[in-house]
């Protein structure tokens, strides 16, 4: 493991009752990098993110900037700069876009209104669509706009490490492209990213390193370019299997 790892996951297992959904997975995410976890449906990717976030109990050790997260609650992890954009977005559907964004800064409320205001301006700058829709209820947004709002709300918490679960899920190809360019832009702004994707090709293109998870086990890892060239990965995840 590199010394400068922002997040270190060591031998983490997650059980649902008697079934182990994630089995002794270890991975690291470096500061300022985009790391991706790919794998088929049901491989345990979402479960792994939920465990890192503290939404599910897990065994093993999860360290963030050298500090163990195992005894911390979800909210304490958020306050330390670890923010998750979940697969289901989990927006506040019956509240306005502006309310959703404001609540994204809840963990940062002690930094004062001015700081929140500044972050809000940045988010609106990055997502001009959200500024247009700020008085609209989150539940009435389109799929792409919802994903933007979910990203915007996460950014309001000023994350150091942003975890994205299937950000391209259910979006039109054009919107997927936009979302991925935003992800690259965030890395340039200094946010480290842990990306879980089924769209393996896109994920490996934007990321620095990749991990392949299958039925709860980590089966491969390495620089993204190498993974993309790996024939097994190409066959299974890049849709070149039968050719």
């Amino acid at each position: 493991m590199t010394v400068d790892a922002l997040l270190e996951v060591r031998d983490v297992s997650v059980r649902y009752g008697k079934v182990e959904a994630v089995h002794r997975v270890s991975l690291a995410a470096g500061e300022g990098r985009i790391v991706t976890v790919i794998g088929p449906n049901g491989a345990g990717k979402t479960t792994l993110l939920a465990a890192i976030m503290g939404l599910l109990p897990s065994h093993g050790d999860i360290r963030y900037r050298g500090e163990s997260l195992m005894t911390l609650s979800v909210e304490e992890r958020v306050a330390r700069g670890l923010v998750l954009v979940p697969e289901k977005r989990e927006l506040f559907a019956s509240m306005t876009v502006a309310d959703n964004l404001e609540l994204g800064a809840f963990a940062r409320r002690r930094d004062g209104d001015a700081a929140t205001r500044r972050t809000l301006d940045e988010v609106y700058h990055r997502f001009p669509r959200l500024l247009e829709r700020r008085a609209q209820l989150a539940g009435t947004l389109s799929g792409g706009e919802r994903q933007m709002l979910a990203l915007g709300r996460a950014l309001m918490g000023r994350p150091k490490l942003l975890m994205l679960d299937e950000p391209s899920l259910g979006l039109a190809p054009l919107v997927v492209r936009e979302i991925f360019s935003i992800i690259v832009g965030l890395r340039q702004a200094g946010v480290s990213i842990l990306l879980v994707e089924q769209n393996a090709r896109a994920a490996l293109q934007v990321s620095d390193e990749g991990f392949v998870l299958e039925t709860g086990d980590l089966v491969l890892s390495g620089p993204s370019a190498e993974l993309a060239a790996n024939p097994r990965v190409a066959a299974t995840y890049l849709g070149q299997g039968a050719q």
Partner: peptide, 16 residues
């Protein structure tokens, strides 16, 4: 209100 609307979402926003 946020907690009432979406408990998971509220936790992820840091509302315990």
């Amino acid at each position: 209100r946020a907690t009432a609307v979406n408990r998971v979402g509220a936790r992820l926003a840091g509302i315990s």
